[in-house]
Write a protein that binds this DNA or RNA. Structure first.
Lengths: 167, 167
DNA sequence: ATTAATCCTATATTTACAGTAGGTTATAAA
DNA sequence: TTTATAACCTACTGTAAATATAGGATTAAT
């Protein structure tokens, strides 16, 4: 699943990019949420159904769903076997909400704190740079709403029946 | 150096954030480049000097410098012991240029290609989302020039002598 | 020739991610 | 009330990249 490393000095120095990479749980989480958003107002979806339509391992989906539930984003309609549904309107759920179900905080460098302000007393030009970038990313994820994603997906599902997720 | 894991289900599911993180080499690379930018038009800086002023291990800096050289961003002024200097005006070097010295490409998810277009034939709403975010990040890094960083750093170094980098 | 800076290879260590396995509990249906 | 099935939870493993460090070879200045 992983591509070849690229080295300078024949070894070391430059590795395959694994940082600045979104984790799979967040990706899967978003896809799961899109699926549930498309069912918004419907009968609810079973883990099995989500697993099959999304091509995510049933067992692995356990963890995804657990995190989404723990974060209060989804819930069982009524007891088991009734399926899951969103707790809020997809319009009111941002991608950042979903991200936060899988990561404590988005910090592209460690010495930035929650609100995007730096903890260091001393001045550091690069810190300012990364801090700004961090803010931009979070702002984007907060601006993107689940509804938009579900709408796009639904539209395209109608246009070409049988389309498949790949991410 | 690493903070505690946070678990749901008591184990697994959520790990310490290691994704969506800038790698240290890029961070060090930027700091190295700031240092050289502040010396722009000067006598050149030795690896030892950069190592000391930045608090980066001399040996580790080997790899940083190697990558920057391989990328053509820096060069020895003339032979050894003459010090390194930038090959271009800091005004013409973007942070993305530096990033590219350490990572083949910035791709927050694997199924995006260089120009920000998706490789998949099938439509995928989340792909579009990540693709846009990727573009935003790259755009920001391309817009930020080394000169700005060096200027800020120089200004603050003058304001408070003896300031120290932390990132 | 000596010194020292650069240049290069190899290797160690850590640890989070990604994923699997195996089980218990709850609930709906038979 | 038995059975089937879905949800729920814990534990564990394999892998691979990141983050270094060590040691030496090469080159150039003095």
């Amino acid at each position: 699943m992983h591509s070849k490393r690229i080295y300078f000095y024949t070894t070391n120095t430059i590795g395959k990019v694994d940082k600045m990479k979104l984790n799979t749980k967040t990706r899967y989480g978003v896809r799961t949420m899109i699926e549930l958003a498309m069912d918004w107002g419907g009968k609810g979806l079973l883990q099995k159904e989500i697993s099959e339509s999304q091509g995510i391992s049933y067992k692995y989906l356990d963890h995804i769903i657990s995190a989404l539930k723990a974060r209060g984003l989804i819930v069982n309609v009524e007891g088991k076997k009734s399926g899951y549904r969103l707790t809020r309107n997809p319009e009111e759920i941002t991608v950042y909400d979903i991200y936060k179900a899988f990561e404590p905080e988005l910090l592209i460098v460690d010495c930035l704190v929650h609100d995007g302000k730096c903890t260091n007393e001393r001045y550091c030009a690069s810190n300012e740079l990364w801090c700004e970038l961090n803010t931009i990313i979070v702002k984007y994820l907060k601006s993107y709403r689940l509804k938009e994603l579900a709408d796009k997906q639904m539209q395209m599902n109608m246009d070409s029946a049988g389309s498949v997720y790949v991410i």
